[in-house]
Computed example of a mutant assay.
Amino acid sequence: MLLAIEQGNTNTLFAIHDGKAWVAQWRVATETTRTADEYAAWLYQLMHMNGLDFKVIDDCIISSVVPQSLFNLRKLCQRYFDRQPFVIGENTHLGIDIRIDKPREAGADRLVNAIGGHIKYDGPLIIIDSGTATTFDVVAADGGYEGGAIAPGINLSMQALHQAAAKLPRIAIEKPNRKIGKDTVSAMQTGIFWGYVGLIEYLVASIQGEYGQKMTVIATGGVVSLFEGATDKIDYFDHDLTLRGLLEIYKRTLATSAAS
């Protein structure tokens, strides 16, 4: 079985694939001080609850945008699964062109998403990933990664608003039914939520205009379900896109190693 680890700035996803399907998935808050032993103790309990043992793990693959945590994730794989993990950007084969000015700066998560989108949808694509940051990534019809845009995530914007303005409370993000808030909380929810819908719609239209052709728009990420039904600019909501990309990179890496 394959253990796939996808680490973002806010959450880290652990998922197990049995060769046919994803059989288990768990999330934990990303903390740069969490040790390999702490990860192992947490993961052991969850795997045990699902009838799984550490011995069933044959391989590991990691995608991380948090360099401070990568050491301990690598140690987790080495110490508890006796495996040298595949790490996006280090020892994996992506099989795509990275067509930006500084390819080394392309985030692992954005490249994984590009591959996860390309193998399922007809291109070219715009992939919107809504997490700590909201990213807009352009994927060519041949799967090449062509860049995009990065904006603050919706939760980050809400947090900044609360911290910077003394009288604005910390609130939960919800989809408001109206555009004119009648109190402070509803006004904040309206501004943040519909402001993000506006951000999505404007950037999608602008990117398509600059690209010069119709593009399929896919949305993924931890809070993306908030926007379902709020805009017609998104063609597909795909919560499995990142894991699909990780699995495909794993397969491509194995195939390349076998051929060499």
Rank of each mutant, 00 (worst) to 15 (best):
T242G: 11
T10E: 14
Y196W: 02
F227C: 01
L94V: 08
L43H: 12
W194C: 00
H17K: 05
G181R: 05
L243K: 01
T135G: 03
V185D: 02
G148Q: 02
R99N: 13
T32H: 14
S69I: 10
Y202F: 14
R99E: 08
L43Q: 04
M47D: 05
D53H: 05
I249K: 04
C77M: 08
G148N: 04
V65Q: 08
F136Y: 11
D122R: 02
T10H: 09
V185T: 12
A149Y: 04
L254D: 03
P169Y: 15
T32C: 09
G89T: 04
L125Y: 01
V204K: 00
F86K: 01
W194M: 00
F193I: 00
L70D: 13
G148W: 01
E31F: 14
D232A: 11
A166M: 02
K167I: 08
K251S: 09
A187F: 08
F136G: 05
N50M: 03
Q68I: 08
I127T: 01
I62S: 06
T216Q: 03
G8H: 04
I207C: 04
G209R: 11
T220N: 10
V56K: 12
D18T: 05
M47V: 11
L241E: 03
H118E: 02
H17A: 11
A219M: 15
A164V: 08
P176H: 06
K55G: 14
L254E: 12
F227K: 02
D53Q: 10
F136Q: 01
G221T: 01
I16W: 13
A29D: 15
V28F: 15
D122I: 13
V66R: 07
E105R: 06
A114E: 01
W42G: 00
V28S: 10
I234F: 09
A133F: 00
G229W: 09
A114Q: 07
A160K: 00
S206E: 15
L13S: 01
V185A: 13
W26T: 03
L246N: 09
G222S: 06
I57M: 15
V204A: 03
A149P: 02
Y80I: 05
A15Y: 13
T256P: 01
A230T: 03
T30G: 10
Q7N: 08
I154R: 10
F81D: 06
R110S: 02
R34Y: 15
